[in-house]
């Protein structure tokens, strides 16, 4: 008999295949939202566009708010309101962070997009993805706890000259709502997290310049990427 940690419980509607189906839907939605964003756009209009796109795909309900963060607002931590009226520049950075509920199952996906040719921004977007995968490899390589995984991620960020925002440090995902089971961060979990039940978030902040980059996806084996 395999013992399940209480923080890894699921609801009655939990379905592995459905969780993966939602993952595909939300990752595609992130890319499609980003494809509609243009320099000169005001952030509030991008958020409204994202909400509409998700609603058209049957994802009216979101377990967390829809975030499209432009420019300096990319430094804001999860839940913090954006400064109003930020317009995407010709050389700029933005990220999409969505947490839709599709039917009974939760999804969560985020990624960063760069317009123009700012080398720091391009490197930041790439480093967020790289650190996500390095941390995920560490999770596959040894039975590290959530806390150890984020210590590893913070070291990786520092080595590349970034600050890892530990206010955005992973969480559960399940049939809706996972918050009824566990609403805390993965970075405070002292056991080895299981596949398909957790989201790994990487939010990097530039040490001097006012921008950040973000990537998140489920903790899954290599075959899913």
């Amino acid at each position: 008999m395999t013992l399940i940690h209480p923080l890894e419980n699921v609801g009655t509607a939990f379905d592995r295949d459905k969780m993966l189906e939602v993952r595909t839907l939300v990752r595609q939605a992130v890319d499609d939202i980003a494809a509609n964003v243009r320099p000169g756009m005001v952030e509030e209009d991008a958020v409204a566009m994202a909400r509409t796109l998700l609603a058209e795909r049957g994802m009216v309900r979101n377990w967390h708010d829809v975030y499209v963060r432009f420019g300096t607002n990319t430094t804001k931590t999860f839940g913090a309101p954006s400064d109003a009226g930020v317009v995407l520049g010709e050389t700029d950075v933005f990220f999409v962070d969505i947490g839709p509920v599709w039917k009974k199952w939760e999804g969560d996906a985020g990624d960063t997009f760069v317009v123009g040719d700012d080398p720091d921004m391009r490197r930041g977007a790439e480093d967020a993805r790289t650190i996500f995968h390095l941390t995920r490899q560490e999770w596959l390589r040894r039975p590290a706890s959530g806390r150890e995984l984020y210590e590893f991620a913070a070291r990786q960020a520092a080595e590349r000259g970034w600050k890892l925002n530990l206010d955005l440090s992973g969480h559960r995902l399940a049939d809706f709502p996972h918050a009824a089971i566990h609403d805390g961060p993965l970075a405070e979990v002292d056991f080895h997290p299981s596949s398909l039940l957790w989201v790994l978030e990487i939010h990097l902040l530039h040490p001097q310049r006012p921008f950040g980059t973000f990537f998140e996806d489920m903790l899954l084996e290599d075959s899913f990427f």
Partner: peptide, 13 residues
């Protein structure tokens, strides 16, 4: 009463 999204008119709980 739950408030999963934290009052952002997103989750409906």
């Amino acid at each position: 009463l739950l408030s999963v999204c934290g009052g952002k008119k997103s989750c409906g709980t």
